[in-house]
Design a protein around this nucleic acid. Structure first.
Lengths: 149, 149
DNA sequence: TTAATTTATTTGTACTAACATATAATACAA
DNA sequence: TTGTATTATATGTTAGTACAAATAAATTAA
């Protein structure tokens, strides 16, 4: 369905504005879908995001600042998110030996198991939701890069 | 900057996943920018969104359900957002004559003035932020429509 | 017409985000 | 070295989101 119909707005000030609104609207929808999927597994979108980042680093521990750099939502509070994950025993946290201000974080076996359980579903959702060809996905990605400048 | 560099992730499982991540990341950034801009004027993104919808209806009042339909973020709580706008005297709320369950909402003069003051800045931000040609903006919008299915 | 169902809106609650400030460790300069 | 600035993380606060449940009016069916 075209964005005009989704939000029942016929006219836009410009192509830019239309694209802009379309982008925000689409991302909101994807985000809501993701949230609902992750909820089954007891995770928020950002918690999942952090676990994925940590898995990419195994077997190395990574400090909180680096996690924040890699997060999709730079504004979410990594410190508190990690705390939640620790309570669920999905990550471990320990003081860095080099710099005592830093906290090194590592995903646990339990965390890895959870991600493994989720992988299939996540990939499926990403693929099914995306009604694009591989080429179109590439073009879209390139345009987004260009948009951000 | 390419998404790989933005989030320091070299590999993606697929073009789909990369596009997906890029979309969420880009929308988050736009959203943060918008939020900061609107804050100057004492509005949240969704409050602004509602005012814009109401301006589109002038001089007709529109009920809460219709506003919700047109909102970019369907999850935000229109009822409470309207309450905030009413406190600032940017909108008026009155019981519908046809159906007493419904609440008709209309933007006030003060609301229209505020939007007018904001128009220039908003448009400027949309244009400057977007490093795309008109044609590219159109393609991007079409791909997003297709993505949502 | 009365009871049951549906619809529109509000409200309660828990959780997350946004942002400022605090705390503590390290680096750097005088 | 000693004070000052900087950096890493944590925490307090306010507002917004997600979703369920409450309320109340309108619609439909018996």
């Amino acid at each position: 369905m075209r964005i005009e119909d989704e939000i029942k707005q016929k006219k836009f000030k410009s192509e830019y504005q239309k694209m802009y609104i379309n982008l925000v609207y689409t991302a909101n929808r994807l985000n809501t879908q993701q949230m609902r999927m992750f909820k089954e597994f007891g995770l928020s979108v950002q918690q999942y995001n952090i676990l994925r980042i940590l898995r990419g680093q195994v077997p190395t521990a990574i400090n909180l600042g680096l996690i924040q750099d890699r997060m999709l939502d730079k504004n979410s509070n990594a410190s508190r998110l990690i705390e939640k994950l620790k309570i669920k025993k999905l990550v471990e946290r320990k003081e860095s030996k080099i710099d005592r201000r830093q906290v090194d974080i590592m995903i646990t076996e339990k965390g890895l198991d959870l991600l493994k359980k989720m992988d299939g579903k996540v990939e499926e959702a990403e693929l099914i939701d995306s009604n694009l060809t591989k080429q179109e996905a590439e073009t879209l990605s390139d345009l987004l890069d260009k948009l951000r400048g």
